[in-house]
Amino acid sequence: MKNKEMTKEELLQIERNIGKILRVGVFISAVVIIIGILMFVVSGHSGYPEGIWPDKFNEILTGLVEFRALAWLMAGLFLLILTPVLRVVASIISFTKEGDKLYVIITSLVLIILIIAMIIGHGGA
């Protein structure tokens, strides 16, 4: 009985950690988006010529360093999209710790599908 209670406590701790990942990810992305909005409001422009969007990772990083409003907004959106992906990774880790091979396989397939969808959505395939 004592081992079962510890297992429940460990599962509860894993769920808390996953919840923290989601909260922190959303908070950080919101802060980055707000910074981008404030930069846009103060400067009155995106930091890029009309019709130009930073859509590659290195372009976004360069725009962040150069304090371009649109790059900050794009980075915030990227972080927001990345948050549930991190949750899937955390779930794989937790299922591995539990020894639940079936859910490790299923969740790994979900992660692979997410990665493929992001690659296709970005125009990489």
Rank of each mutant, 00 (worst) to 15 (best):
I52L: 11
I18F: 01
L80Q: 11
K4G: 00
S91F: 03
S108G: 15
I116C: 09
A125L: 15
R16M: 12
E98W: 02
A30P: 04
K56Y: 09
I120A: 12
F78V: 15
V32Y: 07
E59C: 01
G123H: 07
R68F: 02
L61K: 09
A30G: 15
N58Y: 09
A125T: 12
G99K: 00
E10C: 08
F40K: 10
L80M: 15
V89T: 13
V104L: 02
L114K: 02
I105T: 11
S108M: 05
S43L: 06
R16G: 05
L64H: 07
G51Y: 02
V31W: 04
R68G: 02
D55W: 07
A117E: 07
V32G: 06
P54T: 11
A90D: 06
F57D: 01
M1W: 09
E10S: 13
W53S: 11
G124D: 12
G36I: 03
K4T: 10
K20L: 13
V31H: 03
A125R: 08
I93T: 04
G25D: 08
L114V: 09
N3T: 09
G47V: 05
I34K: 04
L73R: 05
L114A: 11
I113M: 08
I92H: 00
K2C: 03
A125Y: 14
A125V: 13
W72K: 03
K4A: 14
T62D: 13
V41N: 03
K8R: 13
K4M: 10
G121E: 04
E5N: 10
S43A: 11
L70E: 09
T83Q: 05
K2N: 12
V110K: 07
L109N: 08
L73C: 01
